[in-house]
Write a protein that binds this DNA or RNA. Structure first.
Lengths: 138, 138
DNA sequence: CTCCATTGATTAGCTATGCAACTATATGCG
DNA sequence: CGCATATAGTTGCATAGCTAATCAATGGAG
C-alpha cells in the first residue's frame, strides 16, 4: 500500500537492519546503539559529548544516555576537561579497548555477508544514495 | 567514521525522514506512525490487527498500541468478527473518514517536494532498492 | 567588574518499537 | 466429547530516539 513511499520503506528497512545488527553484536551483549557508541569512542578516545552526537547523528540528550549506559557497564568513563568546565571527555576503559578489534570485526563480518547477499555494487550505491539524500533533507 | 555502513546510514536517514513527515502531519496533530496507521485502515476498513501489522511491517504488539491510541482519539474503533471470537476488525470513525483525503494529500505533497529536490529517478530507484534489500534480509 | 546571552551537558516527559509471556478462543485428534 | 496444540490479540518490560526545559560555566558588553 505504501510501496512508493520513501518514509515508509526506509523506516521498515531500518527496523529490519536493526535486527540483523542486534544479532551481530549479541556475543558482546551490546545493542547496535551501544556498539556504535563504543566504536566511535574507541576510534577517537577523549571525544566530547557534542562530538559523539555529531558523529552518530543523534541528539545530544541521546548521547548523554548512551554514555550513561556504557559507563554503568564499565566500558566508558567521563573526564572533565581543563579548558572548559562544561565539557566532558569520553574515554574507553581497558575493558572497552580489549574488545575494540572484535567489535569492528563483528560489524565488518555482517557488512561482508550482506555485500555478498545483495551484490557489492548495489550495497555501495545504496549507502551512497542514503548519505546523499540525508544531506539534501532540511 | 561509519560512512560505508548500511545500518548506520539507513537508520540516520530514517530519523531524518521521521522529522520531515512529522512536520507534514503536524496540521492533523498526528505523528507519522499514527498517520500511516490511519491511512492503512482508511484504505481497507475492517482489516484485522494482524493484517495491519503486516501492512505496516510492525510487530502485532505495536499494532495493538497504535490502534489503542487512535481509538482513544476517536479516529478508530474495534468490532468483534462473527466468525472468530479472537479477531477484531478495525474501522475508521466518521471523524477519520473526514480527513482521509487531506491526509493522503499531505503525504503526497511531501513526496512530490522530495522528488523535486532529489530528482525523480533517484527517488524512485532508492525506494525500489530499499524494498529489494528488505526482501533479501533474513 | 557585573550582568546577560551563549553554550555543553543533563533531565523530564513522551513516542515507537521489539520480544516474551499471557489470555482467550479455535481446532483437531483420539 | 475432552484435552492438547495453535492462533489472535494484549500486556509487561525494556531500548532508543526526540524536544523542551534546566543547570552550570563562559565570555563579552558596558
Amino acid at each position: 500500500m505504501f510501496d512508493h513511499c520513501l518514509y515508509f520503506n526506509t523506516t521498515a528497512l531500518a527496523r529490519q537492519l536493526e535486527r540483523v545488527w542486534t544479532e551481530a553484536f549479541k556475543p558482546f551483549e551490546l545493542t547496535p546503539s551501544q556498539a556504535f557508541t563504543l566504536r566511535a569512542v574507541l576510534e577517537k578516545p577523549g571525544m566530547l559529548h557534542s562530538e559523539l552526537a555529531d558523529t552518530l547523528k543523534i541528539a545530544r540528550a541521546t548521547a548523554t544516555r548512551a554514555v550513561d549506559g556504557l559507563a554503568a557497564r564499565g566500558l566508558l568513563e567521563r573526564r572533565a576537561t581543563k579548558r572548559d568546565g562544561r565539557e566532558w571527555e569520553i574515554h574507553p576503559t581497558p575493558a572497552a579497548v580489549a574488545i575494540k578489534d572484535a567489535l569492528n570485526d563483528a560489524s565488518g563480518a555482517v557488512t561482508k555477508r550482506l555485500k555478498q547477499d545483495l551484490g557489492d555494487g548495489v550495497f555501495g550505491d545504496f549507502v551512497q544514495q542514503a548519505r546523499s539524500i540525508t544531506g539534501k533533507l532540511p
